[in-house]
Simulated assay, not measured.
Amino acid sequence: MTGEIEARLKALNLALPEVASPVANYVPFLHINGFLYVSGQLPMRDGKVAVTGQLGSGLDVEDGMEAAGICLMNILAQAKNALGDLDRIAQAVRLSGFVNSTADFTDHPKVVNGASDLLVEILGDKGRHTRAAVGCSSLPLGAAVEIDAIFAIE
C-alpha cells in the first residue's frame, strides 16, 4: 500500500532517487530521540552532481532553485531509507541551505526556496519548517547548493 506522502509524490510526477553514499567520513542520517537528522545532500542525479558552479557567476536563481529541489528529493530519499515509510514524518523542523555564490550574490533565500516550496508541496503543513540560507565560496564536488534537514518522527 502506498502511503499518503508517496501518493502525493506520484501525483506530482516525482520519484525518489536512489540514495547517495556519503562522500566522506559521516553517516547519511541519524534517527534519535524522535528526530531524524539527514546529512547535507548535494544536487546528485544519476551518481553525479547535476548543478555545479557559483550563483552570481554563470548560474542564476532559477538554476539554484533547481539544484535545491534536487537536494530536497535526495533528502526525502534518505528519509525513506531511514524510516521505511515517509508517512512517519510528523513535521519538518529545519532545513539549512548552503549556496555556492559570489560575494555580491544576495538571493540565497530565493535559491533555498527551491527546496522549501517543494517540501511544503509534498508534505503539506507538515512541510513548514524553520530555515537558514547561507552563502559560501565553495561546496563539495563543486556543487551549487547543499541542504540538510531535521524531521520530527512519529
Rank of each mutant, 00 (worst) to 15 (best):
I5D: 15
A7T: 07
A11N: 09
A11G: 09
L12A: 06
V19M: 07
V23N: 06
L30Y: 10
L30E: 14
Y37W: 13
Y37F: 15
V38M: 02
S39D: 09
P43Y: 00
P43C: 00
T52L: 12
D60T: 07
E62Y: 11
D63N: 07
D63T: 02
M65N: 13
E66D: 14
A68L: 08
C71M: 06
M73I: 07
N74H: 07
L76W: 14
Q78Y: 08
A79P: 04
L83P: 03
I89D: 12
F98W: 12
N100C: 01
S101T: 06
A103G: 09
D104C: 05
D107R: 12
H108S: 00
P109L: 13
P109A: 13
K110A: 07
K110G: 05
V112W: 11
A115I: 07
L118K: 05
L119R: 03
V120Y: 13
E121N: 15
L123E: 03
L123Y: 01
D125T: 15
G127D: 02
R128C: 06
A132F: 14
L139F: 12
L139S: 10
P140A: 14
A143L: 04
A143V: 02
A143I: 03
V145C: 05
E146M: 13
D148Q: 01
I150P: 06
I153C: 08
E154W: 12
